[in-house]
């Protein structure tokens, strides 16, 4: 039963899976491509956080008037850091999970593509 399943899966997946597990040049190139895509995604999204949040202390420091602005009676830095930063972080995280899963799906489709 189990053996049958394994052989069926191997039959379906074809040669690309073997390329990956056997560490051939094609397999290496494939996995390197995936790692690079995932790393690029993570770096891009950290850059978003770096600018969006990391820029704030610098902004408050060079433009003190921004820190004195008030919205609905609350000073802007308090509102940005104390409240809005959290949904912002969750939104970035949500975007990452979606895009990272899409990268993996693309990779899986490539590997499981029926052989000609």
């Amino acid at each position: 039963m189990v053996l049958a399943e394994v052989s069926r899966r191997q039959h379906r997946a074809g040669g690309t899976r073997t390329e990956l597990t056997q560490q051939t040049r094609v397999g290496e190139t494939l996995i390197r491509g995936l790692v690079r895509a995932q790393l690029a995604l993570a770096v891009q999204l950290s850059a978003v956080v770096l600018v969006g949040l990391g820029g704030l202390p610098w902004l408050f420091a060079i433009a003190p008037s921004v820190g004195r602005m008030t919205v609905l009676g609350v000073n802007l830095p308090w509102l940005l850091l104390g409240v809005l930063s959290f949904p912002f972080l969750v939104a970035v995280g949500w975007t990452y999970v979606r895009l990272a899963e899409r990268n993996e799906q693309d990779f899986a489709d490539l590997v499981q593509r029926p052989e000609r």
Partner: peptide, 24 residues
């Protein structure tokens, strides 16, 4: 005051870094 609001922001953002670079 306001300068230490970075503590809670950072404590939460640590999980974003964990998610982006390490979790899976």
């Amino acid at each position: 005051g306001v300068d230490v609001l970075w503590y809670p922001v950072g404590f939460a953002a640590g999980y974003l870094a964990l998610l982006l670079f390490v979790a899976a």
